[in-house]
Simulated scan of single mutants.
Amino acid sequence: MTDVPTDTKPPRLLSLDALRGFDMLWIIGAETIVHQLAKWHKTPWLHAWATQLSHVSWEGLRAYDLIFPLFMFLSGVAIPFSFESRLVRGDSKRRLAGKIVIRSLVLVLLGMIYNGLLSDQPGPPRLPSVLGQIGLAWGAAATLNLLVRGMKGRLACIAAILGIVTVLQLLVPVPGIGASELTKTGAINAWLDRLLVPGRLHGKTFDPEGLLCIFSATTLTLAGSVLGSVLRKPDVTTWRTAGFVFAAGAAVTGAGWLCWHSGYPPIKALWTPTFDLLAIGIALMVFALFFAVIDVAKFQKWTLPLRVIGMNALTIYLLTRLVDFDQPSTVLFGRLANACGDGKLVVIASGALLLEWAVLYFLYRRKIFLRV
C-alpha cells in the first residue's frame, strides 16, 4: 500500500499537541513537584510515584524512562502532516530534503549549545545531546518518509534497524571484551562512542545519545511517522482507529516483554531493541487514549493548558536551560512558601512551573511558536 498525497487537508490533531505538552510538563517541573511532595509527605503512594519519576540505574523500565522516547515518537507523528501538505502545495522532494538537512543540523547545534559548547566550563564539551538525537533521528525518519512512500517499506526499515542493533549488541565482539556485554564499558555502544565520538561522554565510558543509540532510537521516530501516515488519511478519526492503534501498541509491548524475559533487557542508556519495542508499544497505547478522548470523543477544552506547552516545546526546553525560574518564584511566592513550613520547596517548584506556563501562554496568545 502506498501513501498518496491528498488535496484535502486533515484537521489538526489536538491530541498530538496535548500529549506533547503532557510529556514536556514532566520535564519542565511537574517531576520536581512530585519529588518534593514525596519528601514532604512520606506516604507510600507518593514514594512509588516519585520512584516512577526517576530513571532506573541501568536495566529495567520506569515511567520517567519513557519521557524522551515519547517525544521522539511524537516528532515522527507530525512528519506526514507537514510533508504531505508541502508536497501537495508543489514543493519538490529536493527542496524538502534541503529543509530536512538544515533542521537536523540546527537541532544538533542547539543541543551542543545547551550542553555548554559556548560556556566557560572546564574540560572538553559534550557534543552528543538530547536535541541532537532528536534532530538526527527526525532527519532520518523524514528522509525515509520522502523516499519510502509505502508504510510497509517503513515498517521494514524499523525491523531492519532493530535487527542490525540486535546483531551488533549481542553477536559482534568488542575488542578485548567479547560479545553481548551490555555494560557501561563492555557494550558495543560504549566502544563505538570511545572510538569515534570526540569530546566528553555523558557516562564517561559511554554516551546515552551516542552513535549507535541514535541509530537505534530512530525506530521511535519512524514508528511515529507510520502512525502519522495512518492518521492523515480521510475518515480515520473513529473509535475503530483508536482501538486499532491501542491493539497495535499492546502487541508491540508484548513483543518487547518477550524479548526482556528471554534475556535481552531494556536498557535506555544503550537503546536496546527491547527498550525500543517497549517504548514504541507504550507510546502507541498512550497516544490511542489521548486520540480517543480528544479527537474522537471531542473532550477538548481541558487540553488547553497542555497544548500551550506542546505547541512551544522547544521554546520551553531551551528557556529552562537559560532561566532559573526558581528565582522569580521565590520573589513572588516566597512568603507563602515560608508559611508552608516543610512544604516550602513544593510551593517554589509549583510557582516556577506556573511562571513557565505563563510565558508560554503569552506566546500562544500572540501565535509565536519557535519551530526550527
Rank of each mutant, 00 (worst) to 15 (best):
T253S: 12
N338K: 14
L182E: 03
P328G: 01
A97G: 15
W191M: 01
I113N: 04
V359F: 14
L105A: 13
L25N: 05
T143S: 14
I134L: 13
F81D: 04
L284N: 06
Y317K: 00
R365W: 07
I134M: 12
G132R: 04
S350H: 06
A297N: 10
G186S: 09
Q327F: 05
C157G: 00
S54E: 11
L354I: 13
A78F: 08
T219K: 01
S75F: 15
P305C: 02
F287R: 07
G228D: 03
I27A: 14
G351L: 01
A48T: 10
T272R: 01
P273L: 08
P124D: 13
L211M: 15
G116E: 03
S216L: 01
A140Y: 04
L107H: 14
G163T: 11
G334M: 04
F246C: 15
W45R: 04
M112K: 10
D193S: 04
E209S: 06
Q300I: 07
V331S: 09
P175T: 12
T166R: 00
S15K: 08
A30Q: 11
F362V: 11
L107Q: 13
S180P: 04
L66I: 12
L278W: 05
I316Y: 06
W45K: 01
L196K: 09
L118G: 10
T219Y: 06
G343Q: 08
E356V: 08
S129G: 15
L14G: 12
A190H: 01
L220F: 05
L353M: 06
S229C: 07
L360V: 00
G199L: 11
G111L: 05
L66E: 09
T205R: 00
D235S: 13
G199W: 15
L192H: 04
L74C: 03
W40Q: 12
A279E: 05
A179D: 00
F206G: 01
A142L: 11
V108H: 03
L155Y: 12
H47E: 15
L136S: 05
F325H: 05
R321F: 03
A358T: 15
H41A: 14
D342R: 13
F290Y: 10
P266D: 06
A242H: 07
V148R: 13
L227N: 00
P125V: 05
K344T: 07
A156M: 14
R154Y: 03
C213K: 00
